[in-house]
Amino acid sequence: MSVSSLLLLCFSAVFAENLVFTRLLGVGPLITVSGKPKAALTVGALITAVMTLSSALAFAARRFVLEPLGAQFLQIIVYVVIIVLLSEGAGLLLSRFLPALYGIVSVYMPLVPANCAVLGASLLSVQFGHGFVQSVLFGFFGSLGFALALFVFCGVRERLELADPPRSFAGVPMYLVALGLIALAFCGFKGVDFGGGSLFPFTLS
């Protein structure tokens, strides 16, 4: 794979086919993680690590265990087990080596496995018939797009603190409407031609 096609792929996965804004996966952490940039970046990095590794392991588990045994129906459980183990492992490593950082994000730890984007990336890879390299790239760039969304929204939230909405709209309803507007802005990337460098054979709508 040449450098330019890799760059195109990266751009398409992060912006034009952003998992959050084009497929609505992983919105939970976006709303729950506080507006602090440091927490947002740490959670983003954790999810990137878990998602990339889980894409690789999920592919291996499917190709070498489930398919030979004809047990594809166990896919959901196996993927969830992989994701849970990886996120518990990531939490342990973080608490061992970076305890200060772990203190900031420990409340958000259950959000890592209970995140549609992580499982969704593996399931979409199966649906698209990705090979190993494609699956891992999809997991990695997809999660980078997720981390970008988390960081962008963190900045938007800081501005929303200043707003004075109707009482029923305060907090999450307002965040959702703001996310809708960001999603609309991300639609603009749809018109860009990436020269076929997409990991997504077809789009949602």
Partner: peptide, 12 residues
């Protein structure tokens, strides 16, 4: 029908 609409509808 766009994802943006889902966010706004759910917000309301």
């Amino acid at each position: 029908a766009l994802p943006a609409g889902a966010f706004v509808c759910l917000g309301f």
